[in-house]
């Protein structure tokens, strides 16, 4: 921990995300308590935990949207507050105003806003990058649509495209698989994999424990505190899960065997 403070110019040795003793609260009870972990660059990481366990809070803290009560988030060795724009964000579906008067293309273009000073107009290049990103998620066809006029999976892909257009090294996604059908889930996963291949680091809030092991390189098990962080086999451990989910998990019985036996 000591040596990182001096020499942070060398981003290749620094972890993509370093969360250091993070505590975040909205009221008297902290939503996150003393959370620390380190994510190397180029990994696809899942965040799991029951409702209200602080998954979205963690994402917002890494984004720099929430100010921690204590602790620091470092992105490639730099404090998150100084790394504006290096993280892209795909919001939880429920938190988006789908009636907002904005087209698919315009949403993706927002990914470029951070690259253009406020007094300048968006150049041809920005439009091109936005179009490329739309092409990548195969949504070019819908670029003129208002965002409410898409299916759940398509909406998800638009925000993925925005994150791509942003050109960020770290992508944070809040429940991208919620409310989409199996085929779309695969399509989104493919985009995630592709993004990972391109060297990006992805942190994904996920609610389905049965697919967690298959999708992610490593998992973060969260319930206010960090219960486990590591390979899916280590995290999806029966005892851990029963502690965190307190028996409220229906698929739990199926799941624990998958992990115990593997």
């Amino acid at each position: 921990m000591n040596q990182s403070s001096k020499d942070n110019s060398d981003s290749s040795t620094n972890p993509a995300i370093l969360v250091d003793n993070l505590t975040v609260s909205y009221g008297p009870v902290p939503a996150l308590l003393d959370v620390s972990f380190k994510v190397p660059a180029g990994q696809l990481i899942g965040i799991i935990g029951p409702n209200g366990s602080g998954k979205s809070t963690l994402i917002k803290a890494i984004l720099g949207f929430l100010k921690p009560d204590f602790g620091t988030v470092y992105l490639f060795g730099e404090p998150a507050a100084h790394a504006k724009g290096r993280v892209a964000y795909v919001p939880q579906r429920g938190s988006v105003d789908w009636d907002f008067p904005v087209s698919v293309q315009e949403v993706v273009l927002m990914g470029r806003y951070g690259h253009v000073p406020w007094w300048k107009n968006l150049g041809q290049q920005e439009w091109q990058l936005a179009d490329d990103a739309l092409e990548m998620v195969r949504m070019s066809h819908y670029r003129k649509r208002q965002i409410g006029e898409l299916s759940g999976g398509q909406q998800q892909r638009v925000f993925m495209a925005r994150a791509m257009a942003q050109g960020a090294d770290i992508l944070l996604l809040d429940e991208p698989f919620a409310g989409v059908d199996a085929a779309t889930e695969r399509a989104i996963l493919d985009v995630l994999e592709q993004t990972k291949q391109a060297g990006k680091t992805l942190l994904v809030v996920h609610h389905d424990l049965t697919t967690a092991a298959e999708y992610f390189d490593a998992l973060i098990l969260l319930k206010q505190r960090l219960y486990a962080f590591g390979s899916p086999e280590a995290v999806l451990h029966r005892r851990l899960l029963s502690e965190v989910y307190e028996g409220s998990l229906r698929i739990f019985s199926d799941l624990s065997q998958t992990t115990k036996n593997s």
């Binding site: 984004l63 949207f65 504006k84 993280v87 964000y89 904005v102 949403v107």
Partner: peptide
């Protein structure tokens, strides 16, 4: 006119706006 983009993005997605430094 000057701050159209900033007004648009903070209205639509304040979290993302904050993350890119708006």
């Amino acid at each position: 006119i000057l701050f159209f983009r900033q007004l648009q993005i903070t209205t639509f997605d304040p979290i993302m706006a904050a993350s890119i430094g708006v």
